[in-house]
Amino acid sequence: MAPQQTRYHPMAREAVRLLAQQYRRVGQEVRTLAAWMGQTVA
């Protein structure tokens, strides 16, 4: 799958959102991926 398709795929976006939500201390990799997808991680 091309990176652009992953960036905008609803299931990929939801997976990143859930990872960031479930864990208080999100790793740098998840933060970077979320930022690349246009999401913010608190």
Rank of each mutant, 00 (worst) to 15 (best):
G38F: 04
Y8A: 15
A2L: 15
Q22C: 05
A35Q: 06
A15W: 05
V26F: 00
R7L: 12
Q28A: 06
R25V: 10
G38T: 03
Q5P: 05
A34W: 05
Y23L: 06
G27M: 07
A2P: 15
T32G: 06
L19C: 11
W36M: 01
M1S: 07
L33A: 10
T40A: 01
R31T: 12
V16G: 00
R17G: 08
Q39L: 09
A42Y: 03
H9F: 09
V30P: 07
A34R: 02
V26P: 04
M1G: 08
H9Q: 14
R7N: 12
V30R: 07
A34H: 03
P10H: 12
P10E: 09
R25A: 14
Q21T: 10
W36A: 07
M1T: 14
V26G: 03
Q5C: 12
E29S: 05
R25F: 08
V16Q: 02
V30A: 09
R13I: 14
M37L: 06
W36N: 05
T6K: 12
G27R: 02
L18F: 06
L18R: 15
E14K: 11
R13K: 12
A42K: 07
P10V: 14
A35G: 06
T6H: 07
A12F: 00
Q28I: 08
A12K: 07
L18M: 11
R13Q: 13
T32I: 00
Q28T: 01
Q21A: 14
A42T: 03
A15S: 10
W36R: 04
Q4F: 13
Q4Y: 14
Q22S: 11
